[in-house]
Simulated assay, not measured.
Amino acid sequence: MTSDVEPGTTRPGGRTARVREAVLRAAGDALAEHGFERLDLADVARRAEVGKTTVYRRWSTTTGLVADLLADMAEQSVSRSATGTLRGDLRENARLVVRTLTDPRQGPLFKAVIAAATCDERTAEALRRFYATRITEWAGCVDQAVARGEIPANTDGREVIRAVSAPLYYRLLASGDPLDEASADRAADAALAATLAGVYTADTPDTPNTAT
């Protein structure tokens, strides 16, 4: 779902952490520039200014490197917003997705990873774990909205968050339509309208849904 990774984020640590950071940054740059098919461990080592042996020993394959890159991106992802209303929270989520997907580095990087996931199961599993982390993080704002009585009880927060970002990824990967704040807000508002109508509740179809 939402990528939610602000460019330029770093994390302090010892030598091992610094090597990992440099290699993952280099891997992300290479993916953004050339895509998954041209990702090469030797090139990543050169970009990161570390020994090839270190890269091959720790990551072994390009798919292993991409899996670790996605894990790192999930660790560094921006925490969800808390605006006080579900509409505000969903708009913040959608705008963060748009900022990420339109970033000069992050946008091409995600396209490359998604393309790789279509033909490599290990990459696909890593991508699923990444999005599961982000969806779970942002689903909390839906749970809070339920507690405030804004939306129907038993609303599935994960489904709501998926509904926010799905049209934005469609624009990125399929239609080529603009990705901007207006499209982000429309996606959030559409998901909210469906949520208020009870579309994402766990109730049976014959059970009326009302906010408590």
Rank of each mutant, 00 (worst) to 15 (best):
E150A: 07
A132N: 11
R46L: 10
V146W: 07
V160T: 11
G14N: 08
L24R: 01
L179I: 10
V55S: 03
R87W: 04
E121M: 07
L172K: 01
I114F: 12
V98Q: 10
L127M: 14
V50D: 04
V199W: 07
R25V: 06
A132F: 04
A190K: 12
S77K: 08
R18N: 00
F130D: 05
R18K: 11
A17G: 00
A193V: 12
T201Y: 09
A193M: 06
R129T: 09
R134H: 10
D203N: 14
T102P: 11
R158F: 02
G88N: 05
E6T: 12
H34K: 08
Y56E: 06
L39R: 06
L70D: 03
T10P: 00
T201I: 07
T83H: 08
V113C: 00
L69P: 03
V19P: 00
D143I: 05
Q76I: 06
L96E: 11
A22C: 04
D177G: 11
A194C: 13
T10M: 01
P152Q: 13
R105P: 01
F36H: 00
A153W: 06
Q106D: 08
A22F: 01
D189Q: 08
C141R: 13
V55C: 06
P12R: 02
A67Y: 03
V23K: 03
T102Q: 12
A17Q: 05
L39G: 08
P205N: 01
A194M: 12
S77Q: 15
M73C: 04
R122I: 03
A30K: 02
L41H: 02
T2G: 15
T54F: 04
A115F: 01
S3E: 10
G64W: 08
T210D: 11
E37K: 06
P208V: 00
R58W: 06
H34F: 03
A115E: 14
G13V: 00
W138T: 09
R128H: 12
A126Q: 10
Y56H: 15
E125D: 14
D156N: 15
V164D: 04
Q144A: 15
V44E: 06
R91N: 02
L127W: 12
L65W: 02
E49M: 12
P152S: 10
N209K: 15
G64F: 07
V55Y: 02
D40A: 13
G149F: 09
T136G: 14
A211V: 04
I161K: 09
E121K: 03
S60A: 13
E49R: 15
L172I: 01
T102D: 08
L41R: 10
T16W: 03
G149L: 05
W59P: 01
L86M: 07
V160Q: 11
V113W: 02
T9W: 12
R162C: 05
A174F: 12
Q144C: 05
L41P: 08
P7R: 03
T62S: 09
V66D: 01
K111G: 13
D206K: 03
D40M: 05
R128Y: 08
L196G: 05
D29S: 11
A30Q: 12
T123D: 03
G149V: 02
S183G: 13
L101S: 07
P152M: 11
T207L: 06
E21G: 04
E159K: 13
E37L: 01
G149P: 05
A194F: 12
T2D: 09
Y56W: 12
D206E: 13
P12H: 04
